[in-house]
Write a protein that binds this DNA or RNA. Structure first.
Lengths: 256, 256
DNA sequence: CGTCGTATTGATAAATCTCAAGCAGCGTGG
DNA sequence: CCACGCTGCTTGAGATTTATCAATACGACG
């Protein structure tokens, strides 16, 4: 079986008590929580939503009235300048919590777009204060997720600001690979990679052409392979060193 | 009286009930809160700290056991690559809350450095969960601040990734000016600006020399002035347009 | 087979970086 | 009081990186 023949789009459970049968909960990447907290989260859950690749999860400049947890698939946050230049701010995958910023941004918000078919669990933003008030643990976990998200953006800012083209690509490939693997999405060394070169260029702050030439070079050195939407890291050490990007093993993450 | 003759370093009140006499509380930039919440915050407060310009508030790669609220002065968060290249992630001023990320980052942290003399209110990170648990409102406000901080980094990432040198400088000047003014720190059109060109270069992802030449050009066009550590925007509209950086009026901010 | 979107490649232009040097302010020691 | 040394700002020249333009290739799909 080839990795790229695996199914990717995983749907959240339907029917009563969906959170009971949540596939992410059994994933060791996420912190296990007592029944009571699980019930609390389920009480705030308003259903699920599916977005196809390329579809908008949250439109730019428009405050969303909903919050989402990604259940499966890859998405990304982005902003565009008025002449169309786009910057991808961070990539999102299973377990990431979306939409918090909108609460405070008065419409000056980023957009969120699906890079592959994405399934989401939906919450009402109007419930946010109730979540904090009645379930402080939930509030703490949301803050945890927000802080982690900021750390990701910090790293991307270092990349865009201070790394050259090869270092940027190396860093990005390792970053995507590690995040997917941590979330338990690696299959025989491959992880799902539905991004086009334009996405990579927009994430790294490079032009499409230069991104292509740089990726070609690293590919030719045998550092990685991308085939039919799947990524494999051939020489992790070389990419880590080139990108000056090392990461300690990550602790389990809260899941809302 | 020239603006640059004004005192800048404001010390937090000493003695019993310091939060009662907190100068930031009377600032309309910050949300007014009931006595009870103020008492709660004070009960977590562990004192104050002064850091001179250039001093470290939090050392890079080292998890801080404390959390801080900036009381006065300018600071900045940064990361360095192993060969010394430095990226400034965001600037910090009165009301900003520091150190949250460290809770989750396992030592992979940014540093925080004072750009001018800085005064801080100190909290124990060990109290963080108690804060959320006993004072959900406080937890909510901390999340608010974390989300706003992430929005700042988002904007900086767009700048480093997709703006050219002139646009970057224009954006940065307007950004600093607006934040200081929102915090009530503007005096006759001037705001305190203790940054060197190296700071600006490191924030924008440019070399020092190119930063200098670009700033010179905008200065020569009469768009701004920097004198003795104070900044004045001469042509806000031109800088806004050049930087493609518009901001709506900002609501009052929570203060911890 | 034609069409479309994406990937690839070469040639050239533009932006940015690096190196090197000079200048100005400022605190210090003689 | 002044020469000295230090730090930060400024400027020019040339090297390097990255962007832009233009053309082709390739694969999916109707």
């Amino acid at each position: 079986m080839k990795a790229f023949e695996l199914p990717i789009a995983l749907r959240p459970p339907e029917g009563p008590n969906p959170c009971e049968r949540c596939a992410l909960r059994t994933n060791p990447a996420f912190i296990d929580i007592p029944q009571e907290q699980r019930d609390a989260i389920q009480s705030f859950r308003r259903g699920s939503r599916r977005v196809d690749a390329g579809g908008a999860i949250i439109r730019e400049h428009r405050a969303s009235t909903q919050l989402f947890t990604i259940y499966s698939g890859w998405a990304f946050r982005f902003k565009t300048l008025s002449d169309g230049r786009r910057q991808i701010l961070s990539f999102l995958l299973a377990g990431d919590f979306i939409g918090l910023q909108d609460e405070f941004a008065d419409g000056q918000t980023h957009g969120v777009e699906a890079a592959s078919e994405v399934h989401l669990c939906v919450f009402d933003r109007a419930d946010l204060w109730t979540m904090f008030h009645t379930q402080p643990r939930l509030g703490y976990d949301i803050t945890w997720l927000a802080a982690r998200e900021e750390k990701l953006v910090d790293d991307n800012l270092v990349t865009a600001g201070r790394r050259n083209a090869s270092e940027r690509v190396a860093m990005l490939l390792m970053h995507i690979y590690r995040r997917a693997r941590h979330a338990g999405l690696e299959r025989e060394g491959w992880v799902h990679f539905p991004f086009q070169q334009q996405h990579i260029a927009d994430a790294l702050g490079l032009s499409l052409v230069h991104t292509n030439k740089t990726m070609r070079r690293l590919h030719h050195l045998g550092l990685y392979r991308i085939e039919r939407g799947w990524l494999r890291i051939q020489d992790p050490q070389a990419l880590e060193t080139l990108g000056d990007y090392f990461e300690r093993p990550v602790r389990p993450t809260p899941l809302v």
